[in-house]
């Protein structure tokens, strides 16, 4: 089978449009994950043993089971109990929750890397726990977490094709449609692969540069 350039040019606008959806899905999922991940990380540091244990087990459970299955679970279980979610909404919930669990581990590592003396100094200054977290601990916990946070941004982007199974019209979904309309799969699938490479490799480079920048800014190097 030969590569057809004219066909490639014909389908390119549709693929570019789908790339927008893929980026939107990755961005939306990541936005949920960044916030919820911090909540999950902080919940594991409360003095309430039961809460800490329950959150820890939930995080472990979500991290050890396939995202694809979780996407199906969120999409199909809702309607059984009368809650109808659109493919986009259930996709964002599933992918956001899945990555929140990964990010909570990244935050946890960052928070644990803050020296104990910082906590003691904050206590000596009569700061409340909230103030200590917000003004002392979290700002110092972020720089060591930047590389992990960045890696999972690329990770979430690469996992968005799974949303195609519930009908989110991202890249793979569009490539499937184009392929079955024209009975040509070579160009759409190859182009999707190239688009993924063209986005994820430079992003990974940018994240490394940003990591160096943050470390310099914080005077860590």
């Amino acid at each position: 089978m030969e590569w057809r350039w004219d066909f490639t040019w014909d389908i390119l606008p549709r693929l570019i449009e789908a790339t927008g959806n893929t980026l939107l899905a990755a961005g939306g999922g990541y936005a949920i994950a960044v916030v919820l991940g911090l909540v999950l990380a902080l919940a594991q540091r409360t003095p309430y043993r039961v809460l800490t244990w329950v959150v820890r087990e939930i995080v472990e459970f979500i991290r050890s089971t396939p995202l694809l299955l979780q996407i199906f679970f969120v999409f199909y279980v809702g309607p059984q109990f009368g809650i109808r979610l659109s493919p986009w909404a259930s996709g964002m919930i599933a992918i956001g929750l899945h990555y929140a669990c990964y990010l909570s581990e990244v935050y946890r590592g960052g928070i644990e890397s803050v020296a104990k003396g910082q906590w003691e100094a904050a206590t000596a200054l009569n700061m409340t726990t909230m103030q200590t977290y917000r003004r002392i601990v979290i700002p110092q916990a972020i720089p060591p977490a930047v590389s992990g946070l960045g890696n999972y941004l690329v990770g979430i982007f690469k996992d968005t094709p799974m949303l195609s199974v519930i009908g989110v019209t991202e890249l793979i979904h569009t490539a499937n449609t184009i392929g079955s309309e024209n009975f040509r799969f070579l160009e759409p699938y190859t182009m999707v692969g190239l688009i993924f490479l063209a986005i994820s490799l430079p992003t990974a480079g940018l994240i490394r540069a940003f990591e160096r920048y943050v470390r310099r800014k914080m005077g860590l190097q």
């Binding site: 690469k158 793979i172 999707v192 692969g193």
Partner: peptide, 9 residues
């Protein structure tokens, strides 16, 4: 740099 799903397909 690419997704597992893309590679699989």
């Amino acid at each position: 740099g690419t997704s597992l799903l893309v590679q699989l397909y």
